[in-house]
Amino acid sequence: MTSLLSPEVTTSDAMTDRCDRCSAAAKLVVHLTSGGELSFCGHHANHHRDDILRVAGSVVLEEGFEWAGK
């Protein structure tokens, strides 16, 4: 039996990363439980929220961004 744990969610004043899918300004950075990180724009962060929640150890949101996974 596996249990889903919610990742730790924090905020950041400003992000300089770019989305790994489309190169738009990142609104969310995912630190993966397996190591590494991925950055997403607002559109892709909300579109992939279920997958992000499944693999995230922690999530950093840009201040003011309303993420559907929160």
Score class of each variant (00 low, 15 high):
1 M>L: 13
2 T>A: 11
3 S>F: 14
4 L>V: 14
4 L>F: 13
5 L>T: 15
5 L>K: 10
5 L>Y: 12
5 L>C: 02
5 L>G: 10
6 S>Y: 06
6 S>N: 15
8 E>M: 11
9 V>W: 06
10 T>P: 06
10 T>E: 08
11 T>Y: 07
11 T>M: 00
12 S>E: 14
13 D>Y: 06
14 A>H: 14
15 M>G: 05
16 T>N: 08
16 T>F: 07
17 D>I: 03
18 R>C: 07
19 C>V: 12
19 C>T: 10
22 C>S: 06
22 C>T: 03
22 C>E: 04
22 C>H: 10
25 A>L: 12
26 A>R: 05
28 L>I: 01
29 V>K: 12
29 V>E: 01
30 V>M: 11
30 V>G: 07
30 V>D: 08
31 H>I: 02
32 L>W: 06
33 T>F: 01
34 S>P: 06
35 G>A: 11
35 G>Y: 08
36 G>T: 12
36 G>C: 10
36 G>I: 07
37 E>W: 07
37 E>G: 09
37 E>L: 13
37 E>S: 15
38 L>Y: 05
38 L>A: 15
39 S>N: 04
40 F>G: 05
40 F>S: 00
42 G>D: 03
43 H>I: 14
43 H>P: 00
43 H>D: 13
44 H>R: 06
45 A>F: 09
46 N>Q: 08
46 N>W: 05
48 H>A: 08
50 D>I: 02
50 D>P: 01
51 D>R: 11
51 D>V: 11
52 I>P: 00
53 L>V: 02
54 R>F: 12
55 V>M: 09
55 V>F: 03
55 V>D: 03
56 A>L: 00
59 V>F: 00
61 L>G: 01
61 L>E: 00
61 L>K: 01
63 E>G: 04
63 E>I: 04
63 E>F: 04
66 E>C: 02
66 E>V: 10
67 W>A: 03
67 W>V: 04
67 W>Y: 07
68 A>V: 11
68 A>C: 09
68 A>G: 05
68 A>F: 07
69 G>Q: 00
70 K>M: 06
